[in-house]
Design a protein around this nucleic acid. Structure first.
Length: 209
DNA sequence: GAAACGATTTGCT
DNA sequence: GCAAATCGTTTCT
């Protein structure tokens, strides 16, 4: 993929990533996820971004070139995966929040079984930490390049990106969570693999029995 | 050094 | 609907 495609302003780029695929090859096998939900984070200018308070050891890969991963550990339990975009030093990134497993389902299920419960295939990569588990990505993949189609991790653009809906980012406190200023979560409408946690939107009630 | 807190998930009520 | 789990990173004294 042409790296310059990733250099446009991240709030405009993020929805264009929907429908694209992320493939990870490992000794265990190959898993591919089609992205259905993402969030944009706009570097030092964005109070919701990890880069807002400048470069640190943890977020160093955000400040690198577009087309690499920024992976971090959250709450001591989970990993979240971002695609670094923009120009070097800009620290813009797109958080990969959810997707649909389109290849390697058996392996994705096995990985999810190791770390948690997974009742249906739709849940395999429904949520940022689940997506990381399904793909087998962790801190080792921080900084990994994704633009080489033959690499261990590779990103492919959607040929025909689906139409998307946007709303407030999840779990961002302070001004960065203000939907009027940063309505930067994008998802494919009516897509079951979009993460369940949606403030302001009704959650599907648990089945009674 | 110490302390607070976080771009979440899960299970129990 | 709510709270626990669990620990690295960052900030403050």
């Amino acid at each position: 993929m042409d790296p310059s495609w990733l250099e446009r302003p991240v709030p405009r780029l993020a929805p264009a990533l929907l429908g694209g695929t992320v493939t990870v090859r490992s000794g265990e096998g190959t898993v591919t996820v089609r992205l259905t939900e993402v969030e944009a984070y706009d570097g030092a200018e964005d109070p919701g971004s990890h880069a807002f308070r400048g470069r640190t050891a943890r977020n160093a890969s955000m400040f690198g070139a577009a087309g690499h991963l920024y992976v971090y550990r959250h709450l001591g339990l989970h990993h979240c995966v971002n695609l670094v975009t923009g120009r070097p030093g800009e620290a813009a990134a797109v958080l990969l929040r959810a997707g649909e497993v389109v290849a390697g389902r058996a392996l994705a299920r096995e990985r999810r079984r190791r770390t948690g419960v997974c009742r249906t295939d739709v849940d395999l990569a429904r949520g940022p930490a689940r997506l990381a588990v399904a793909l087998g990505l962790d801190l080792e993949d921080d900084g990994a390049a994704v633009l080489d189609p033959a690499g261990r991790v590779s990103l492919l653009r959607a040929q025909d990106p689906p139409s998307s809906v946007q709303g407030p980012r999840v779990g961002v406190s302070g001004p960065g969570g203000d939907a009027r200023l940063y309505p930067w979560r994008f998802w494919v409408d009516a897509e079951p693999s979009v993460s369940a946690y949606r403030p302001g939107a009704p959650r599907r009630p648990r089945t009674a029995h």
